[in-house]
Design a binder for these strands. Structure first.
Lengths: 228, 228
DNA sequence: CGAAGTATTGACTACCTTCAAAAATTGTGG
DNA sequence: CCACAATTTTTGAAGGTAGTCAATACTTCG
């Protein structure tokens, strides 16, 4: 079992968001940057802010006492993170790649949402959509083989990122193998082995560690639900 | 692999909710009953209604083409089911035990919610809470052993149902072993073997198939995260 | 009481994990 | 820019947990 030891972006004894800006400087609160590996917040922190990803990719994860980790979600530009049902966050959140975020005070955000029916509808729709994708994630974690999990993951990233037809089949994977493994509920070795197997089958190519060229999308798609 | 073959409560060629009541009889729409095994809706059906469980337990599940199934959630009294981000349901929903439901027209429901800030806040909080419990489910599916999964499940059902201190340690499991297996991402045989093992360890007793007496709650709790 | 469905138990197998080492990549200081 | 260390990824061999197949026991229901 492996444990990632996350490092706060700034060390500080003042209970403040990781980016370390003054709380009462409204303008400076509006947008922040994170470097690769920086933490945004931890499980148990006060949930005073909600965030919107502008650029980069975030990783939400939960950890068991003995260090076993489950990556809950990767957050891409346009998505919200940090909305809690109570006053605390219930997972860790880190930057997987250099990221820019828009920050909202939780209370102000909720007030704005409640007072604007259109905003509210959008948020509720997003929440329902996220729940739906979480349910697909359940099916994957609970019932798919290692190869099916990996194929599903690649398809999902493909559909989530490249809307441009010309670059559709070139997938960027900013996260490490350990992040992918913890997202799919398997080990880094199994992730690596199955990537290699997909390469040898001619379904993908691996130009570099964090790039996947999909050579046979339809085959990959069929492997996502019906392994070999 | 096993496939459950669900049966509609009423056979009908009219596209109508399963309970088969006239759409324009407002009063008769307000509450419905389901027998054990009845379906409420299927993946792909028009999502015209949302439901609130009054009595009994529902099961939400998704199925792969080859029949592999993942139970997404068990819905207990007080919980909502059927809120979708688009016009379709994205999972099957069945009654695990005889159930009573309150029915809302989706549009009317959303309108009511949007026009009442307090109602809205409650719904959003519930959604966030449900997401939080889904994230715990992820951790369980992806990273826990069979025994840890089963112990976690028993603890969760215990905390969800019996608020009464005297009956706290007597758990009712209305669902079948196959439902539990599909919820935990394992087989019925593994569920059965581990229940037996818990019994032989003296942690639980099994007075009947659908009843579990927890003899050593603290031991069970520790097994949920740290299987021997 | 018999039949159908459900649950338990047993024997064997397979997939994924674990442990270990080599290869590749990334980062750092001279 | 290169050399070297640290980290990450890949590959290999062995082992274990849970799955599969099969038979028996138990429950439910006509």
């Amino acid at each position: 079992m492996y444990v990632t030891s996350p490092v706060k972006a700034f060390e500080s004894d003042i209970p403040m968001p990781v980016f370390g800006l003054s709380e009462n400087t409204q303008e400076r609160l509006q947008e922040i940057s994170l470097s690769e590996g920086d933490s945004l917040f931890f499980d148990g922190d006060d949930a005073d802010y909600v965030y919107e990803v502008i650029k980069g990719v975030l990783r939400s994860s939960k950890v068991l006492m003995d260090g076993r980790r489950q990556v809950v979600n990767f957050c891409y530009p346009g998505e919200m993170v940090g909305i809690s049902h109570d006053s605390r966050y219930h997972f860790d959140c880190h930057a997987v790649s250099p990221a820019k975020l828009r920050v909202y005070r939780k209370n102000a955000f909720l007030h704005d949402v409640a007072s604007d029916p259109e905003f509210f509808t959008r948020l509720l729709t997003n929440a329902a959509a996220e729940m739906n994708s979480m349910q697909d994630h359940f099916l994957m974690l609970g019932r798919k083989t290692a190869m099916e999990k990996l194929a599903s993951f690649l398809i999902a990233v493909m559909e989530r990122t490249n809307s441009d037809c010309r670059t559709r089949d070139l997938i960027e994977l900013p996260m490490k193998r350990s992040d992918i493994a913890d997202f799919l509920g398997m080990t880094i070795e199994t992730v690596s082995r199955n990537l290699t197997r997909l390469r040898k089958l001619g379904v993908i190519d691996l130009p570099s560690t964090h790039l996947v060229q999909v050579l046979n999308p339809s085959e990959l798609r069929s492997m996502a639900e019906n392994c070999q």
